[in-house]
Amino acid sequence: MRTSKSISEVIFDAANVILLCLLSIVTLYPFLYVLFASISTPAEFVQHRGILLWPKGFSLDSYRMVFENPNIIRSYLNTIFYVAVGTTLNILMTALGAYGLSRKNVMWKSTIMMLIVMTMFFDGGLIPKYLLMKNIGLLDTYWALIIPSAMTTWNLIIMRTAFQGVPDALEESARIDGANDWTILFRIIIPLSLPVIAVMVLFYGVWHWNKWFDALIYLRDRNLFPLQLILREILIQNDTNSMMTSVGGGDRMPVGETIKYATIMVATLPILFLYPFLQKYFVKGVMIGAIKE
C-alpha cells in the first residue's frame, strides 16, 4: 500500500492549501473589517488609515444607538414578518406548483411549463407592475412585498425536478390505500424532499431579508419599511442624525461612521446564523435540482 507522496503531489497539495487560505482571507476580511469598525472607539477609528486588523479601542455605543433608534427596531420587526410570512407562502406556492407540474397524468403540463419559463425572459416592466399594484390596492401595504413574489420560476423548476425524483410506486401505493393529492404531497413528497425544501427556505429567506427595491417603489409609509431600506438611507443617504440626538456636534462625524458599520452588522448577522443550520442540505438540494430532468 502506497503511503508516501511524490514531490509533485506535495507541491500540488501545498499550492491548494495556500490558495484556499488566501481565498478565505479575502472572503473573511471585509466582514472582520466591518465587525472591528463597529466596536471601535469612534475618535480612534476615524483617525485610522489602511488595513484594520483589530478594533481601535472598544466601544458598544454605536450598537446602543442603533437599537435605541425606533426606525431600526420597527424595520427589524417588519423584515422578520416579511421573511416569515413571505417564505412560508413561497414554499407553499412553489410546492403546489411543482407537484402539479411533476405528475405524469397532468394535461398540458409541458405547455404550462413553457409559459412559466417564458416569464424568465420577458417582463412587463416596472411601470405596468406599479400600475397593477395600485389598481389592486396593494400600495403601502405589507402584502406589496409578499404577494407579487409568491413564487419564482427558477425555484419552481428546481423543486419540480426534485419531486420528479420521487418513485412513482410510492404514489401508486398511496392511491391504492385511498390517499388523495393533498395527502401524497404533504405526507410523502415533501418529507422525501426535505433537502430541496431546506434550500428553498434559504433562497427565499435570504431574498426577502435583502429585498429593498420593491419597498422603495411600493411603500411610502415608513412604518412598513424593511430593514434594508432603512440601511440604505443610513449608508447611501448618510442619514444617521436620528441616532445621534445625544451626541455633541464635534463627535457626530466619527460616531456616524461607526454607526454605519454597527447597522451593517445588525442587518447581516441573523441571516448568517441561519446558514449553518441549512448548510448540510445545501449541496444535496441544489444537486437534486441540477442533474435530474
Rank of each mutant, 00 (worst) to 15 (best):
L192V: 00
F58T: 14
M253D: 13
D214S: 06
V166C: 04
N180C: 11
Y218V: 07
T87Q: 06
L92F: 15
I158H: 02
I25W: 14
G289H: 03
M243R: 04
R49A: 06
A144D: 02
G205P: 01
L89S: 06
S110K: 12
T41I: 11
T161Q: 13
F67G: 02
I136G: 10
E172Y: 12
L96E: 12
Y99W: 07
A179E: 08
L194G: 07
L92T: 15
F203D: 02
V286C: 05
L35S: 08
I184D: 13
L126H: 09
A215E: 08
Y63K: 10
R187C: 03
T79V: 03
M113H: 04
V85H: 06
Y130T: 05
D214N: 08
N71L: 09
I176N: 04
P128W: 10
D140K: 08
S24A: 13
L224D: 00
I18L: 14
A15I: 13
Y218C: 05
F67D: 06
A179V: 04
F277K: 00
S4G: 13
M133Q: 05
F36R: 01
A267E: 02
A95W: 03
L132F: 15
Y130H: 08
I127L: 12
E9T: 13
I11P: 07
K109R: 14
M120C: 11
G289Y: 00
Q279M: 04
F225W: 15
V85C: 06
Y204N: 09
G256Y: 13
E257H: 09
I157P: 00
R74N: 11
F273M: 12
K134S: 15
F81N: 07
L28A: 15
I157T: 03
C21V: 13
K5V: 02
V283S: 15
L132W: 12
D140M: 05
L227W: 09
P167Q: 12
I291N: 06
P226S: 05
V199P: 04
